[in-house]
């Protein structure tokens, strides 16, 4: 309930009205949107029970490892009721052709694979928010100060997910496990996204915000 209450208001895309429509404009709109979404994720992390009790160094380590997985889950959750499009924001949806034209074909394919897996499972909003918190807690950063505190942080979220599934899906005792078994694909998809944005940055075609670059560098 706490995680559902703390869900941030969705961010809207803000395409530059002075730039004519083009593939570059699509990428610019996307990078700007994801940078603002990233700011939201950092603010949201502070409201996950247990996160703020971690040391600042560990909070940074978890976010630096898990931010893209959290962003991917935001996009996935918005796209669950769509069959063809990736819903980056209510006013910013991209289909396969648009992604291909913008050089995001690999990312489209990877995201669609993940989305269809969650669509088949009928992922609920409660599961989305819990998984989103879990990807931060479980981000496998190599440089944490207090692994015990992070383990405890993970255990609390794990317990919340198990409790929820026991009540909501009593007929499927494996549902928690099934959800946790989607995390490798989520990480793989996030890595694909990081690669994509690193490539865009190297190509220098799209300006990126400092925060987004800083977080990409941490990867």
């Amino acid at each position: 309930s706490h995680l559902l209450m703390m869900e941030p208001t969705p961010v809207c895309a803000m395409p530059d009205p002075t730039t004519p429509d083009s593939d570059i404009k699509t990428l610019m709109t996307l990078c700007d949107l994801l940078n603002r979404e990233l700011l939201v994720v950092i603010g949201w992390a502070k409201h996950i029970p247990g996160f703020s009790a971690l040391s600042l160094v560990d909070q940074m380590a978890l976010l630096q490892s898990g931010w893209m997985e959290a962003l991917i889950l935001v996009v996935v959750s918005r796209s669950l009721s769509f069959t063809e499009e990736l819903v980056f924001a209510g006013n910013f949806r991209l289909d396969r052709a648009q992604c291909r034209a913008a050089g995001l074909q690999d990312l489209y394919t990877a995201l669609k694979h993940l989305i269809s897996k969650y669509q088949q499972m009928h992922l609920s909003p409660e599961e989305v928010v819990t998984l989103k918190a879990m990807v931060l807690a479980n981000s496998d950063s190599g440089s944490v100060e207090n692994p015990e505190a992070i383990q405890q942080f993970q255990d609390v979220l794990h317990e919340a997910l198990q409790d929820f599934e026991t009540g909501r899906h009593p007929g499927d005792p494996h549902r928690t496990g099934k959800l946790l078994m989607t995390l490798p694909l989520l990480r793989q998809t996030a890595n694909r996204a990081v690669d994509t944005f690193c490539r865009l940055q190297l190509e220098g075609r799209v300006p990126m915000h400092k925060l987004f670059l800083e977080m990409l560098e941490a990867k």
Binding site: L56, Q59, L63, L211
Partner: peptide, 15 residues
């Protein structure tokens, strides 16, 4: 920390 100063600042900010 110096390298990741924006994240550091955002986390220190209480809002």
């Amino acid at each position: 920390k110096e390298k990741h100063k924006i994240l550091h600042r955002l986390l220190q900010n209480s809002s």
